[in-house]
C-alpha cells in the first residue's frame, strides 16, 4: 500500500527525516513512534505530498511526487486537529469533501453514525467539541472508503475519555482490511492499533519492530498471564492479535505483553468477546520469559 524508499526531508540545515525506508502492506497497520521532533509528522506530510522531499514514496503504486492527486485519492487523512471553515455546517463539510473525493452519493446519517456522532449534521463545526471534530475529520477521511488511513497524532488534543473512545473506534475501523499509518507518541495507542512500529528519533529510524517487541523495548511493560480453558485460547490469541497485542501460548494459558497503561485492556477485550478468564497474574518480562522456558 505504501512504499517509502530513502526519504529525506530537510528544512534548511535541519534534517527532519533522514533516509527513511518502510513499506506497509494492504490491511497492515504501522505506527510511527517517537517523541516530539522525531519526524513523525514530516513523514506523514511527505506521504500526503504536502512537502517536497528526496527519495521516493509510492501509495498504491503511484508516485506521490508526480501523481500526488491520484495517490491522495487512496488516502483518508485525519490531522491532529481539524482546522476548517468553522462556519460550515457538518453536512456542508461532508458534502464539500465528498465532491472533492469524487464520491457521488453520501448517506449523511450513516456517515455520521459510523463515527459515533449521529444527529450532528446541522451543527456548525465551531459548535462541536474537540472529540466530535476529530470524529468529523474521521468521517471525512472515510468518504469513498479509501484503502489507507493516515492519522497524525489524532488524539493529542483530546481528554482521556475522548482519547479512549477514538482509539476504540479506530481499532474497529482498522480491522476492516484497511491499511493504517499513524503517528503517535503514546505507547497505549501504538499497542492498541499497530502491528508494527517504526521507532524514530531526531528524524532517524532507530528500529522497525513488531508491536510485541516494541513493548519489550519500552521496558515499562508487564506481561499478563491469563489462565483460560484450552478451547478458547486460540480464539483469544486471534482476538488479541487483531487488537495489536502479541500473545503467546503458555502451558496453562496465554502470555500477553502489555504496556504499563494497558494492563486491563486484554481482559476487557476478552470479556466483550464473552471468553472466560479463570485467573490472571501480572509478571515482569523476565519472569514471563522464565515461565515460558519452564513450560517449554
Amino acid at each position: 500500500m505504501i512504499r517509502i524508499d530513502h526519504l529525506t526531508k530537510t528544512f534548511g540545515k535541519f534534517t527532519a527525516a533522514a533516509d527513511i525506508s518502510l513499506s506497509l502492506a494492504r490491511g497492515e497497520s504501522l505506527a510511527l513512534w517517537g517523541s516530539n521532533g522525531a519526524g513523525k509528522t514530516t513523514i506523514i506530510r511527505c506521504v500526503l505530498g504536502l512537502l517536497s522531499f528526496q527519495g521516493t514514496i509510492r501509495v498504491g503504486g503511484r508516485d506521490v511526487a508526480r501523481d500526488g492527486k491520484r495517490a491522495r485519492s487512496l488516502i483518508g487523512y485525519v490531522p491532529q486537529e481539524l482546522a476548517f471553515y468553522d462556519d460550515l455546517r457538518v453536512w456542508e463539510a461532508i458534502t464539500l469533501f465528498a465532491r472533492l473525493k469524487n464520491v457521488a452519493r453520501v448517506d449523511l446519517d450513516a456517515t455520521l453514525d459510523h463515527v459515533g456522532i449521529p444527529d450532528q449534521g446541522g451543527k456548525r463545526i465551531r459548535e462541536l467539541s474537540g472529540g466530535m471534530k476529530q470524529r468529523l475529520a474521521l468521517a471525512i477521511a472515510l468518504l469513498g472508503d479509501p484503502p489507507l488511513l493516515v492519522l497524525d497524532e489524532v488524539t493529542a488534543s483530546l481528554d482521556v475519555c475522548g482519547r479512549a473512545e477514538l482509539v476504540a473506534l479506530l481499532g474497529r475501523l482498522s480491522g476492516q482490511g484497511r491499511s493504517l499509518l499513524f503517528a503517535s507518541h503514546r505507547a497505549d495507542e501504538v499497542t492498541s492499533l499497530a502491528q508494527r512500529v517504526l521507532m524514530l528519533d531526531k528524524g532517524k529510524a532507530t528500529a522497525e519492530v513488531p508491536v510485541s517487541q516494541f513493548v519489550a523495548r519500552l521496558g515499562a511493560g508487564s506481561v499478563l498471564h491469563l489462565h483460560m480453558p484450552e478451547p478458547s485460547r486460540p480464539i483469544a490469541i486471534e482476538l488479541l492479535r487483531g487488537h495489536g497485542f502479541a500473545p503467546t501460548l503458555n502451558g496453562v494459558g496465554i502470555l500477553v505483553p502489555v504496556p504499563a497503561t494497558q494492563k486491563a485492556v486484554p481482559l476487557r477485550l476478552l470479556a466483550e468477546a464473552r471468553l472466560s478468564v479463570d485467573d490472571f497474574e501480572l509478571l515482569s518480562p523476565r519472569d514471563a520469559s522464565l515461565s515460558q522456558e519452564n513450560h517449554a
Binding site: G68, K69, S73, I75, Y77, L82, A83, F97, K101, N102
Partner: peptide, 9 residues
C-alpha cells in the same frame, strides 16, 4: 494543510 491533503492539486 487539510485541503491539500485531499485529492486536489
Amino acid at each position: 494543510l487539510f485541503l491539500l491533503a485531499q485529492p486536489v492539486s
